[in-house]
Design a protein around this nucleic acid. Structure first.
Length: 833
RNA sequence: GCCGGGGUGGUGAAAUCGGUAUACACAGGGGACUUAAAAUCCCCCGGGAGCAUUCCCAUGCGGGUUCGAGUCCCGCCCCCGGCACCA
């Protein structure tokens, strides 16, 4: 017996009830057996959140809702959709917050995770809560450490002393990717350069494959382009310039035989009038003449102090110092001076350049500033060997001049010939260089998984035996980093003093922890295998579920996380652990939500707090509104009042299925509405598949408006399909209406997405626009598929069209069936006013 | 500077194999129902001219191609994001 209140849409009560029911009945979760036997597996992945103390923000909810809609849609189309979620809870972010709030991260994180879990359930995500991961749980980071050891064993992890970015505020090393215009991306503090022994993963070994695989994966174009730009491959040559002893006496007699440079323009070598080394180049000492030493050392000290900060400011005028040393241009045989300058970066190529001021803008600036010779070696059309250069001529077009026997060749031909000839003398070879650097994973911090290495004086760095994993992060009350440049773990003697696993003598643990990006580079492998405590990922389950079918996330991770994850998968593939090398078959980057035209930020105080909105309107309305704001992949502008649109829509939908008085009538759909219904099914299906949720929702609204037009009462056959269409967006109301339509179980069990019937979608009469000379002068109603003559006849009968045709002669007729007719006429038509 | 993405009503946005520009929604105005409110329903809503059928103009700016251009081509301007002395 239904009461009046029972017939009112009460989103809060319905959502509570259905969420409890999903949990109780395991609607969204897989048992191990189901994971092993799923017949149409679909792995729907979204980027797991960092569980901040503030709770889920709208950006998270937007991304997760969009991904959830996609997962629910696939499920309604009959796929077995595995949609896990987890927490990326290690890292500087959490640690800094803990320091500020004076809480221990081991206490802070579980509370945040609990809060996130509550919020994620509340928004109605189709998450498999039986397969979550938490990167800070020892049972997870045990395998992160295991992963590191696989890299170590295969020679892909190495320790090297390297110039690194040091953030003096966070007191840690940062990856290049974490430095934004010379400043720490976390806190904005200018970054300094330090030399520290670090662990690196050799991602550069995979640079070419990471690049070459890109065209074959179905990813957002912007993301692939960002990766391509980040890896950036340059083809060129390495050329050795022999040093000369002609520069007078040196401090040490054994100066290096030759200095290698990398260049993409070997064709311009005859214009190389000097050489420049990076100030930190290891050969600087050896080439420097005693007379110049003081000045050189001063310059190097100055560079080092301001490194990576001032050095990245583009407008800065170029500075440098002559070392007093010379080397020989192997092409001309002439001695050229060796300078050091901070515009040459140690981290790229060989850290040394042959300076060709005539054909490189930077070299030109430098040569101009220091009075070094500028020689033209390429002439464009209308120029010759003596045409003066007002600016560097950088285009690889024209012909070579002032280049001995290579004169007259095109730059392209000359590149080949010069490298070939120098190679014959052992002075050069072709080389490919990448902008991508190796991945530094060492962090001198506390809140991360300890790197599972033991340093032994006799044996060197030794892997912690796998049976000893995890190396548990000890609870340390004083985890504040300090200036020393070593991890707080280096203060915990009874933790780091251990016996060498190899020789048994006294040894010490590595005290650095690893980068958070290592945690997140493999989490998607763990999700389906969380039932296995004894292995990182189970082969059988992995074969069934991976690679990931659809991955949705923010484009801010285009070059960090997504590149590392690809690298890890590729390396595991080569180690024989995975049978695929690209982990994400399809990736889509979602857009960003702004509010009332402005970026949301805590300082502006315009951040949307989701909880109160959900409590007022319900999760369904909030989800629907977020998806309605704009194209999912572009983002949208959150206008506070706009939520009433989707809210009203859901109310009207409810009212249509659960009329206030009486029951929903049966019977066939209105013949006028049936084609609209089927066209709506078609549109929504296509648009949801393409993640164009906003227009899919608009199509549903349009249809419901038509169904209810003039206050008419719909019948069941008209609204039941709409309940199915709306389900991915508003799952709770869909479940409830589905139940009230007399169905048992969940709408998401079984392939309940409505079928599109092209027969029923076809309309008998269509509106055809009639143009005269390209301007619309009327529309006519014609039978579908009417031929040109029939439509012309109808058009001539249309009063306004006839008026425009009066006194004219039809020269040409353009007919687009069922859409448009354009009558091209000559005569007085132009005079009608 | 280079590489992306984008400029359409008061607002968020539709329409891109060239084919009725402004769907859907918000805001605004008017009306029905109601004791009232909410909810619901109906009508109007780019600019200009006109009593009106209707006509002209409008998709950042200037050209072009075409029967027809928001969509294609050429040259600019502006906004957002990324990269940035990479030899």
């Amino acid at each position: 017996m239904s009461t009046r209140s029972d017939r009112t849409y009460d989103p809060i009560a319905i959502e509570r009830e259905w969420q409890a029911r999903w949990d109780r009945e395991g609607t969204n979760s897989f048992t191990l057996d189901e994971l092993r036997t799923a017949e149409r597996p679909f792995y729907n992945l979204m980027m797991f959140p960092y569980p901040s103390a503030e709770g889920l923000h709208v950006g998270n909810i937007y991304a997760f809702t969009g991904a959830d809609v996609h997962g629910r849609f696939r499920r309604m189309q009959g796929r077995d959709v595995f949609q896990p979620i987890g927490f990326d809870a290690f890292g500087i972010h959490s640690e800094n917050f803990a320091l500020k709030a004076e809480v221990h991260p081991m206490d802070l994180i579980p509370a945040n995770v609990a809060n996130f879990t509550r919020q994620l359930r509340r928004m109605g995500g189709m998450f498999d809560w039986g397969h979550t991961v938490d990167t800070t749980a020892p049972e997870y980071y045990k395998w992160t450490q295991w992963l590191f050891l696989q890299f170590f064993r295969h020679g892909l992890a190495e320790q090297k002393e390297a110039p690194v970015n040091w953030c003096p505020s966070d007191m840690t090393v940062l990856a290049n990717e974490q430095v934004v215009v010379g400043a720490c991306e976390r806190c904005g503090t200018p970054v300094e350069q330090r030399f520290i022994r670090q662990w690196f993963l050799r991602i550069t070994e995979y640079a070419d494959r990471l690049l070459d695989n890109l065209p074959g994966i179905d990813w957002s174009d912007t993301t692939r382009k960002a990766q391509r730009a980040w890896i950036r491959r340059s083809r060129g040559a390495e050329i050795r310039f022999p040093t000369t002893g002609a520069a007078g006496e040196r401090a040490n007699g054994d100066h290096p035989a030759a200095i290698p440079v990398f260049t993409t323009r070997p064709d311009t070598i005859f214009g190389a009038t000097y050489m420049v080394l990076a100030p930190e180049h290891p050969m600087v000492d050896a080439v420097t003449a005693n007379a110049a030493r003081e000045e050189v050392d001063a310059y190097r000290a100055r560079t080092r102090a301001m490194d990576l900060v001032a050095r990245q400011k583009i407008e800065k005028h170029k500075t440098g110092v002559f070392t007093g040393g010379y080397c020989v241009n192997p092409a001309t045989g002439a001695p050229i001076p060796v300078w050091i300058a901070d515009y040459v970066l140690m981290a790229y190529g060989t850290g040394a350049v042959m300076a060709v001021p005539g054909h490189d803008e930077r070299d030109f600036d430098f040569a101009t500033a220091y009075g070094l010779p500028i020689v033209r070696v390429v002439a464009d059309e209308g120029e010759d060997a003596d045409t003066p250069l007002a600016i560097a001529y950088e285009y690889p077009q024209g012909t070579l001049v002032n280049s001995g026997r290579y004169d007259g060749l095109s730059p392209e031909e000359a590149q080949r010939a010069i490298v070939e000839d120098l190679a014959a003398e052992g002075m050069a070879e072709n080389r490919v260089s990448h902008r991508l650097h190796d991945w530094c994973i060492s962090r001198q911090r506390y809140w991360g998984p300890p790197i599972p290495i033991i340093h032994c004086e006799g044996c060197g760095p030794v892997a912690v035996p796998e049976e000893d994993l995890p190396v548990v992060l000890p609870r340390v009350e004083d985890f504040r980093p300090d200036e020393s440049g070593v991890s707080p773990l280096a203060r915990v003697r009874d933790w780091y003093e251990v016996a060498c696993p190899s020789c048994g003598r006294g040894a010490t643990r590595e005290t650095d922890v690893s980068d958070t990006f290592l945690d997140s580079a493999w989490y998607f492998l763990r999700y389906p295998s969380t039932d296995f405590p004894d292995r990182p990922f189970d082969d059988e389950v992995t074969r069934r579920w991976l690679p990931v079918d659809t991955y949705i996330g923010g484009n801010e991770h285009a070059v960090l996380h997504l590149l590392y994850a690809r690298f890890v998968a590729m390396a595991l593939h080569d180690m024989g652990r995975l049978d695929f090398e690209e982990p994400f078959t399809r990736f889509r980057a979602h857009g960003l939500i702004i509010r009332e035209g402005a970026k949301m930020s805590k300082s502006k105080g315009n951040v949307i707090i989701p909880d109160p909105i959900i409590e007022r309107y319900g999760a369904d309305t909030f989800r629907l509104y977020l998806m309605f704001l704009g194209p999912f992949m572009a983002g949208g502008d959150y206008r506070d009042r706009g939520i009433s649109g989707p809210h009203g829509f859901l109310h009207r939908l409810w009212e249509s299925v659960v009329p206030r008085d009486g029951e929903l009538a049966g019977g066939p759909p209105d013949p006028e509405l049936e084609p609209r219904l089927h066209r709506t099914i078609k549109r929504v299906t296509e648009q949801v598949r393409a993640l164009r949720y906003n227009t899919g929702i608009a199509a549903m609204m349009e249809y419901l408006n038509a169904v209810r037009a003039g206050g008419r009462t719909p019948v069941r056959a008209e609204v039941e399909p709409l309940v199915r269409l709306v389900a991915p967006f508003a799952p709770h109301i869909a479940e409830e209406l589905w139940r009230r339509l007399g169905n048992g179980g969940s709408i998401f069990d079984g392939a309940n997405w409505p079928e599109f019937d092209p027969e029923k979608a076809a309309e008998r009469q269509v509106r055809v626009a009639v143009q005269v000379n390209g301007k619309v002068r009327g529309t006519v109603s014609a039978p579908r598929g009417a031929d040109r003559e029939a439509v012309v006849a109808l058009a001539r009968a249309e009063a306004n069209v006839a008026r425009h045709l009066e006194g004219t002669e039809i020269r040409k007729i353009i007919h687009v069936p069922d859409r448009l007719l354009n009558l091209v006429v000559a005569g007085k038509a132009a005079r009608i006013r």
